[in-house]
Each structure stands twice: as structure tokens, then as C-alpha cells.
Write a protein that binds this DNA or RNA. Structure first.
Length: 510
RNA sequence: GGUCCGUUCGUCUAGGGGUUAGGACGUAUCCCUUUCACGGAUAAAACACGGGUUCGAUUCCCGUACGGACUACCA
């Protein structure tokens, strides 16, 4: 019998969800949907000290923005809830006790000071890596070394204690990672990790295994930073007697900083001036603000597509994939092994592709919104016209107004470099003649009409139009570059055109 | 330091015992355009190194180097 595929994304609410976490969520989601399985979201909030208010809501909003919707989560209860580990707290202890009973775990009463002292002593003795393990635990205060009476007395009197796994001295642990193949680790390099903290909360290792088992998780797809502790997890499944339903593991390559090496961090993103979080985030403790991809103008489908390709590829040349197409094409076999440097240029390129694929009507609503914020007046029809003209030059929706602003606002100043180079007597002569022709013209005004009027003006004055074209553009738009001029004439209309030419003639000196 | 993981153009990657090592982003040049952008074309640009195995290795094996992750009562 093959089990229903069930995967989970299990972030801890310690701050804004990082782009790497979003990718992990995405891969889990794609894998679940590809295999007609379920994607669940579990909040791993077992560390009360690191809990950040708002972080959970942020995770929810981020995933919703991208359409990575969990089938089961704290907000969509399923058969295996609750989906917040803090709410599952009472369940964990029995499992830790079960392990003690089976001889795979023990109580430890060492204080933080004693642990420090032990590490210092071992470091001084040049022991390579000081850890609480099969050798050192014999010298520490735990239920393996203390008399049974004392252990009982300590527990009864409420002495603080933790529960540690008892890692065997000599044992080979092997696991088959879906991405990396067989990974072999010797138990003597593992330490007796804390399973249950003195505050009664489980650590990640315990809670994770217990919950994954209880929730019927079949595949664990998570970041590579977990690979070193995966052998411990395998051991725990074995000790619990759950080996037959142990999930398969896939450890994803890390997202690296764009220059040099190392894990991508918020610092790097700030330095390079690009977002690292999906949404805006304000740290409630420090008040530090970070802009999100969403607020920077990235379209969710573009961001998703970009993210999917960070460490995965479909094996063919196609690069633009909708969520449905990603689901269809996704396999973990095609996830790469090596770390992936983050390149914001590629993200921008994806955004351009998706932006350009939108209809003028759809794009117009962005322009309309942005314009209204500034109190600029324009209607849907005008907005569509402008969008058609400037969308080729936009990466983000906000570029629409930036690129088309001169069509909505009469320029108040002129680009000085262009003016110095191109504004001359010929320009004044042609523009003056153009203006006269505009005033004299009647009948329907169109880009074509406007253009022929300008050509006529140049011809009459015996000046080559090419020589003054830049100056005409400067007069009308205030800058030296932009979309096709006759189209601009058409959108501006005769009156506005005359007004702008007059203003330029008055303001600019030869 | 130890354990584990990794290494194809600047970046993301395809490929795989015999290839002109392919694509995309970025860069450059040209074309289109009386401008800029878009678009089109072209170019520069990679198998980390050393040993094996082999008729032949970028591809398989082993080392080395380099990089990364982990090494908490954090996840």
C-alpha cells in the first residue's frame, strides 16, 4: 500500500519569512500537488525566547500572496491538529519518557554553568569538539551517573532537568537523501542532544519527529542546514519504533549571497539594494524596516517562477512557468546539489516578462492607482493609451507612471545636458513654425497629422528635421529620450502641445 | 579543529566516456528606431587541480584545493 503523499513546511515564527524559506515552502507545495498529496503548514514555536509577534501572520500572508496555500494549517484545521507546536506541548513529554523507558534517553541535571565548565575543560584538554556524548556523559549529572534515589529526589523536588537522547558509542547511521543519495555518519560524531528543555518544551528534534510521525508526513523537504542532524532524526525514528513509516528526506541546496560566498542574509540584500523578504516587514523589537518583493513591484507569479528556478530546472529550455506548469513539471530529481547564488537581475527579467504579458487594460489599473495617489487626473481610456506607449520600458508596475509621467504633467524643467547640446536657433525656428501650423490647423488631430505638420514646418524652414528632433522632444517632454514622438503628440492633443511649445520657447535660451 | 555536503561561462543551469560543451540572465557590438527602450542578430565567456581506469575523460574512481552547512536547553 502506498501512502498518500503528505509534506509540510515548518517555519518558526522568529521574524520575517526569508526568501529561502519561501522556496522551501514552494518546493514542498509543488511536490505535494504533483503527487496528488497534501501540503501542510506547521508552526514550530517551541522557543519561547525567540518568538516574534506578527511573524506567524507574516508567514500566512506571504504564502497567500504567492498562492502557496496549505491544505492543513493553524488556520485550516485538518485531522492532525493542532498545527502550532506550542499548542501541542502536552503531547511531547510522554514520547520523551517513552524513550527513557526504552533506554534511549535520560534525565540530565547539569546547570548551564556546569555545561560551560565541561566544554572549557575539554577544550583545554584539546579534545577536538567538546560535546555531551557517550564519553563525557559519564562525568556529568544525569540519571545514568546519579544514584536512582537522587534522581527520584531531584525530580520530585522540581529540580530543573532536561531529557537527552542517549546516542550509542559506535554505530553507523545511514540515510538515503533524495537529492544527495546515501549519507553515512558514525554515531560517535553525534552528541546527546537535548530532547526536552527545562521549560518543558521539546526541542526541534523531538517535536519535529513526533509531529511528522503523528501527521503522517511521507517526505521531508527542508534546507541543507538540517543535513547534519538528519542522522539523529533517523535514530529517533528507530528508537520510537517508527522506522517503517519514516519519511524520505530531501535536503535542499542553500541560497547563497550574490557576491563571494555564504548563506544569503538580510545584510547582503540591504547592501545590494534588493529585497530578501516577500512582504514588507517591520521588526517589532527594533523597529527596523525591510521592504518586500511585493512592495518593490514584483508580481507574485514572476517571483514564484524566479524562485522555482533557484536550484531547480525542468531539464528543457522553457523558462516561463505558471504555478500549474510548475506543478506539472516538478520533480525532486531535478533539484541541484550545489548552493545557489542569488541574482536579482534574473528576478527583474522575470518580472518584465510577466508584466509585458499582461493586457494594457490590466496594466492601466496600476497606472490609474498610482496616478490617483498623486492626484493626477486621467481616465481609463487615457491610461490604456499611455500604458501601450510605455509598457515596453517598464520592469515594475510603478515604472508605468514614472515613464509616462510627462504625458500627465507639463514639464517644469528641462534636461540641462540635452538642452545645452541640442537647443539652438534651428530648433527655435522649427518649433515656432510647428506651433503656427498647429494653431492654423483644424479638423481631426492625430499622431499622423501632427507628424506631417512638424515635417512641413521643417521643410518650409529648410532645416533637416533630424537635426532638431531631439530639441522638439525636449520641448515637449522635458527629457531627451522616450517613446515615439508622434504618438506623444497624439496623446497630448493640440492645445497641450501648443502650451508646451510656448513654455519651452519662453524658458529655454539659445 | 571535527563531521557532513558541494564544485560546468561573472550568475542560474543543460549535458554526459568520443559534443563546435547547449540555453537563460548580465555584458559588448551590430540591425531596427530621426532618441531611449523593446525586439532581432552576433560576440566574448565555463567543465577547480593532480593522479588513476580507459584507445579516449569535463563525464567514472581516488586524492588535493577551494567553498558551504553543522558543531546551543535556536530552529
Amino acid at each position: 500500500m502506498t501512502r498518500e503523499v503528505r509534506v509540510r513546511f515548518a517555519p518558526s515564527p522568529t521574524g520575517a519569512l526569508h526568501i529561502g524559506g519561501v522556496r522551501t515552502a514552494l518546493y514542498n507545495y509543488l511536490f505535494a500537488k504533483k503527487n496528488q498529496g497534501k501540503f501542510l503548514l506547521r508552526i514550530e514555536d517551541t522557543d519561547q525566547n525567540r518568538f516574534v509577534p506578527g511573524a506567524e501572520e507574516y508567514i500566512k500572508n506571504s504564502l497567500e500572496w504567492l498562492g502557496i496555500i496549505p491544505d492543513e494549517s493553524p488556520w485550516v484545521e485538518g485531522p492532525h491538529g493542532p498545527y502550532r507546536q506550542s499548542e501541542r506541548k502536552p503531547m511531547y513529554k510522554q514520547y520523551a519518557l517513552d524513550l527513557i523507558e526504552k533506554g534511549h534517553a535520560y534525565y540530565a541535571f547539569d546547570t548551564p554553568e556546569e555545561l560551560d565548565a565541561m566544554r572549557e575543560r575539554l577544550t583545554a584538554a584539546r579534545v577536538v569538539s567538546p560535546q555531551y556524548n557517550s564519553i563525557t556523559r559519564t562525568q556529568m549529572k544525569n540519571s545514568l551517573t546519579l544514584p536512582e534515589d537522587e534522581v527520584k529526589a531531584r525530580l520530585a523536588s522540581g529540580d530543573p532537568y532536561v531529557i537527552r537522547v542517549k546516542i550509542p558509542r559506535k554505530e553507523e547511521v545511514r540515510l538515503n537523501d533524495m537529492i544527495r543519495g546515501w549519507v553515512l555518519v558514525h554515531s560517535n560524531t553525534l552528541d546527546d542532544k537535548v530532547l526536552m528543555k527545562s521549560d518543558g518544551m521539546p526541542t526541534y528534534h523531538l517535536a519535529n519527529i513526533v509531529d511528522d510521525h503523528l501527521m503522517g508526513i511521507t517526505h521531508v523537504i527542508r534546507g541543507e542546514e538540517w543535513l547534519p542532524s538528519a542522522p539523529l532524526h533517523v535514530l529517533l525514528y528507530r528508537y520510537f519504533g517508527w522506522e517503517d513509516t519514516m519519511p524520505e528526506f530531501a535536503h535542499l541546496p542553500l541560497l547563497l549571497k550574490p557576491d563571494g560566498n555564504g548563506k544569503l542574509s538580510k545584510r547582503d540584500a540591504d547592501k545590494q539594494g534588493f529585497p530578501i523578504f516577500p512582504l514588507n516587514w517591520t521588526d517589532p523589537a527594533t523597529g527596523d524596516q525591510a521592504v518586500g518583493f511585493r512592495e518593490s513591484g514584483y508580481l507574485p507569479e514572476a517571483f514564484l517562477n524566479f524562485l522555482a528556478f533557484l536550484g531547480w530546472n525542468p531539464g528543457d529550455q522553457k523558462e516561463i512557468f505558471s504555478m500549474e506548469e510548475l506543478v506539472e513539471a516538478f520533480t525532486v530529481e531535478r533539484i541541484g546539489k550545489s548552493g545557489t547564488k542569488f541574482d536579482i537581475n534574473k528576478a527583474k527579467w522575470y518580472n518584465e516578462q510577466y508584466l509585458k504579458a499582461k493586457s494594457d487594460n490590466e496594466l492601466a489599473s496600476y497606472l490609474l492607482q498610482d496616478s490617483q495617489k498623486e492626484g493626477l487626473e486621467l481616465d481609463q481610456e487615457q491610461a490604456v493609451q499611455i500604458v501601450a506607449l510605455v509598457k515596453e520600458r517598464a520592469t515594475f508596475p510603478s515604472d508605468l507612471l514614472r515613464e509616462g509621467r510627462f504625458l500627465l504633467q507639463t514639464p517644469e524643467k528641462f534636461d540641462e545636458t540635452v538642452a545645452a547640446k541640442k537647443w539652438n536657433q534651428d530648433a527655435v525656428t522649427v518649433l515656432s513654425a510647428f506651433k503656427r501650423k498647429l494653431i492654423a490647423s483644424d479638423g481631426e488631430f492625430s499622431p499622423l497629422v501632427a507628424k506631417s505638420l512638424l515635417e512641413g514646418a521643417a521643410e518650409e524652414e529648410e532645416i533637416k528635421l533630424g537635426k532638431v528632433m531631439q530639441a522638439v522632444r525636449l520641448a515637449v517632454t522635458g527629457v531627451g529620450a522616450g517613446p515615439d514622438l508622434s504618438e506623444i503628440f497624439g496623446i497630448l492633443g493640440k492645445e497641450e502641445l501648443i502650451k508646451r511649445i510656448n513654455f519651452a520657447l519662453d524658458s529655454l535660451e539659445v
